[in-house]
Amino acid sequence: MDRILLIEDDDIIGEMICMYLKEEEFLVLRSHNGQEGLAALHDFKPDLILLDLILPDFEGTDLCNSLRSITPVPIIIISSNARVSEKIEAFTVGADDYLCKPFSMHEMKARIQALLRRFKQSHPPEVQQLPVQQAVTVPPMDLNINLEKRTLYVRGESVEMTFSEFELIRLLFEHPERVYRREDLINALRGFDSYINDRAIDVHITNLRRKIEINPKEPKYIKTVWGVGYKFVL
């Protein structure tokens, strides 16, 4: 049974979501504020987090950033704020999807199931032995990427990435020197980021450069092809 952590201070909305998900055979724990949510993360060990952006003790984006630094599980933002800038900020700090209130419970369930399915496919149980060839090292670059475990090491240091950031670096890495238009990258990520657009792609690229480049302003690996898009350089 999949475990859902709901961080929502509104009692009416919180109870509606809990009731619906329990009827759909999810195990649900509701936290009323950010502190409760952080504590529940360790004790409850959720498979997915539903996070309201407006909480009494935390800015939602700050909490999302904190949660992402602790856990790789999918995070769906639920908010009454439909501004594109708000959605982009949420994706930037680690959200995997964004639902605007009011939303359909059936749509919420579909998005939860889609994210859980992709997450489980990309995070096999630790007991499974991975074939050696799945760990790919790129000499002489200081990058080591494991496509099965979805891990990236830069100069020996583990790098934390959002689900969408890894999907982007995986796509670029698997096709070095290929120039991807922003439209190509949007289409590739649309199944993971519901509100992906040109600006969100640029934000993801900027974040990846900060994480893997020695000098993000003069990138060595993720190159801009002016007027077209981006490419990964070996």
Results as ranks from 00 to 15, higher is better:
residue 31 S to H: 00
residue 102 P to A: 09
residue 127 V to A: 11
residue 96 D to K: 06
residue 219 P to D: 09
residue 182 R to K: 15
residue 168 L to Y: 01
residue 162 T to H: 02
residue 36 E to F: 04
residue 177 E to Q: 12
residue 134 Q to C: 10
residue 138 V to C: 11
residue 211 K to H: 07
residue 37 G to N: 03
residue 215 N to H: 12
residue 97 D to E: 13
residue 185 L to Q: 05
residue 178 R to I: 05
residue 121 Q to T: 06
residue 109 K to T: 09
residue 105 M to T: 08
residue 42 H to E: 14
residue 69 S to G: 07
residue 130 L to I: 15
residue 180 Y to G: 01
residue 12 I to P: 00
residue 147 L to D: 01
residue 143 L to G: 06
residue 21 L to Q: 02
residue 191 G to E: 11
residue 150 R to P: 01
residue 158 S to Q: 12
residue 90 A to I: 05
residue 180 Y to P: 00
residue 98 Y to S: 06
residue 37 G to W: 00
residue 103 F to Y: 10
residue 207 N to K: 12
residue 207 N to C: 07
residue 173 F to W: 08
residue 16 M to H: 08
residue 64 C to F: 02
residue 114 A to H: 10
residue 119 F to G: 02
residue 108 M to V: 05
residue 208 L to C: 06
residue 60 G to Y: 02
residue 175 H to W: 01
residue 203 V to S: 08
residue 25 E to Y: 11
residue 205 I to V: 15
residue 43 D to C: 07
residue 166 F to E: 00
residue 213 E to S: 08
residue 183 E to G: 04
residue 83 R to K: 14
residue 84 V to F: 09
residue 97 D to L: 07
residue 49 I to P: 00
residue 86 E to Q: 14
residue 219 P to F: 07
residue 176 P to C: 06
residue 44 F to R: 03
residue 152 L to T: 00
residue 131 P to A: 11
residue 126 E to T: 07
residue 156 G to T: 09
residue 111 R to V: 03
residue 9 D to Q: 07
residue 12 I to L: 13
residue 169 I to R: 01
residue 39 A to E: 14
residue 226 W to T: 15
residue 230 Y to V: 09
residue 206 T to F: 12
residue 170 R to T: 04
residue 230 Y to F: 15
